[in-house]
């Protein structure tokens, strides 16, 4: 049992588990953000709950950060190890004949997502942590009203940020187009449901990023 995570299959399994967790988180993040389009009040209330409820802040948030950091570090570690397994490259290698671009370039799409996450943390997470735990303002209010919706809309005023976010979500879609089904294969789920799951995976991989892009564009053009 102890050696499981030092083996190639164990590492695949660990990558898949962290991927499942992140995909569930992504769905939850999208579900909250889309409220900002349809119901600003609901968005404010849910944001305040997520930002102040102790279990979210001190239990789920550290697990999420661990999940993100683990997924990235393990991804880079595996990439380095995999590169060592072929010291001499082919003079001609027709990768497109047998695999998708997405599956061969997970490290690149993942790398760009990492850059996006750093920017996203600087934009939203660090100011939020500063307000709540350094300034000590847990009220969530600004001029007597919840601040979350207006803060979100302010962030999407500059076109360069909207463009950057859209680009980040394109890389997220590319990553998920391979990653969603790859995670199921890694935990040994390849059966009569696999074709259906592949279809659902494509819907998820394109639908969620497109949804996030829609939210960013909506706030930019309606501000």
């Amino acid at each position: 049992m102890a050696s499981i995570f030092s083996s190639s299959i164990g590492r695949k399994f660990a990558m898949a588990l962290s991927a499942f967790f992140l995909m569930v988180f992504l769905l939850q993040h999208f579900a909250i953000n889309i409220l900002s389009v349809f119901s600003p009040d609901s968005f404010n209330e849910v944001s305040h709950f997520m930002g102040t409820f102790w279990a979210v802040q001190f239990l789920l948030q550290p697990i999420l950060i661990f999940g993100v950091v683990f997924h990235f570090i393990m991804g880079f570690v595996l990439e380095i190890k995999n590169n060592k397994s072929r010291a001499v490259s082919y003079a001609k290698n027709k990768g497109s004949a047998n695999s998708t671009w997405m599956s061969r370039n997970m490290i690149w799409s993942g790398g760009f997502i990492l850059i996006f996450i750093v920017i996203h943390f600087i934009d939203f997470w660090i100011p939020e942590i500063n307000t709540k735990y350094i300034v000590g303002d847990m009220s969530g209010l600004h001029n007597g009203e919840f601040r979350y919706y207006e803060e979100l809309r302010e962030k999407f005023v500059p076109i360069w940020r909207v463009g950057l976010y859209c680009l980040g979500f394109v890389f997220l879609a590319l990553h998920l187009l391979h990653g969603f089904n790859s995670a199921f294969q890694s935990v040994g789920a390849n059966n009569k449901y696999t074709n259906g799951l592949k279809g659902f995976g494509k819907v998820y991989a394109i639908g969620i990023p497109v949804g996030f892009i829609f939210i960013a564009l909506f706030h930019h053009f309606t501000h």
Binding site: S8, L78, K84, S85, N98, S99, S103, R104, H178, N181
Partner: peptide, 22 residues
């Protein structure tokens, strides 16, 4: 068999599916 495979220096599977096609 997996232990021996890892010791031989083969890389990790990332489910590209190239093996199945070829």
């Amino acid at each position: 068999m997996v232990k021996q495979m890892d010791e031989e220096g083969f890389g990790n599977c990332t489910n590209t599916g190239a093996c199945e096609v070829e």
